[in-house]
Simulated assay, not measured.
Amino acid sequence: MPVGLEIYNAAGVRTFSTNDRVGRVLGSVSTGTIDGSISHQELTNGQAFCNVIPLGSIPGPGDSPLAIAEVTIVGGTIRWAFPAWSAAVGAQRANSVLVFGVF
């Protein structure tokens, strides 16, 4: 008999099993509108992830394009940088929240 946690929805479909992975959120940081980085030692204790959540409104027709930070994770450091094209076309840099953690 298998041992472990399994979760089923109301229709009886298994939605979580011992073969699935659960992520753990370690924190969040606001990017502002400049390039930057943050280090967190626990990012090395699993497969790191980072979700970028832009804040504010989406530009409409005729508005400047919106530049969202590009994120890289190396070891225990998350770095974000706005794309090089954003300065050339006068794009509005989007302040974003980065939510990060490990699987």
Rank of each mutant, 00 (worst) to 15 (best):
residue 2 P to W: 10
residue 3 V to N: 11
residue 3 V to Y: 07
residue 3 V to H: 13
residue 3 V to F: 08
residue 4 G to M: 10
residue 5 L to C: 04
residue 6 E to V: 06
residue 6 E to L: 07
residue 7 I to Q: 13
residue 7 I to G: 02
residue 7 I to L: 15
residue 9 N to D: 15
residue 11 A to F: 08
residue 11 A to Q: 13
residue 11 A to I: 04
residue 12 G to S: 06
residue 12 G to E: 11
residue 12 G to M: 10
residue 13 V to Q: 15
residue 17 S to F: 03
residue 19 N to L: 14
residue 20 D to C: 04
residue 21 R to D: 12
residue 21 R to H: 07
residue 21 R to V: 13
residue 25 V to L: 13
residue 26 L to S: 07
residue 27 G to L: 08
residue 27 G to Y: 05
residue 28 S to R: 13
residue 29 V to K: 12
residue 29 V to E: 06
residue 31 T to V: 00
residue 31 T to H: 03
residue 32 G to V: 03
residue 33 T to E: 14
residue 34 I to C: 00
residue 35 D to E: 09
residue 36 G to Q: 04
residue 36 G to S: 04
residue 36 G to E: 03
residue 36 G to R: 10
residue 40 H to G: 05
residue 40 H to Y: 08
residue 40 H to D: 15
residue 40 H to N: 15
residue 43 L to W: 07
residue 45 N to G: 11
residue 46 G to R: 03
residue 47 Q to D: 12
residue 47 Q to E: 12
residue 48 A to N: 06
residue 49 F to D: 06
residue 49 F to L: 02
residue 49 F to M: 05
residue 51 N to S: 06
residue 52 V to E: 03
residue 55 L to E: 03
residue 56 G to S: 02
residue 58 I to T: 14
residue 58 I to S: 11
residue 61 P to Q: 11
residue 62 G to Y: 04
residue 62 G to Q: 09
residue 62 G to M: 02
residue 63 D to S: 15
residue 63 D to R: 10
residue 64 S to N: 14
residue 67 A to T: 10
residue 67 A to P: 07
residue 68 I to C: 01
residue 69 A to I: 03
residue 69 A to Y: 04
residue 71 V to T: 06
residue 72 T to G: 01
residue 73 I to L: 09
residue 73 I to F: 02
residue 73 I to W: 11
residue 74 V to C: 01
residue 74 V to L: 12
residue 81 A to E: 05
residue 82 F to S: 00
residue 83 P to S: 08
residue 84 A to K: 06
residue 86 S to C: 15
residue 87 A to F: 08
residue 89 V to W: 06
residue 89 V to C: 15
residue 92 Q to W: 07
residue 94 A to G: 03
residue 94 A to W: 03
residue 98 L to W: 10
residue 99 V to W: 01
residue 99 V to M: 07
residue 99 V to E: 10
residue 99 V to N: 10
residue 100 F to V: 05
residue 100 F to M: 10
residue 102 V to D: 09
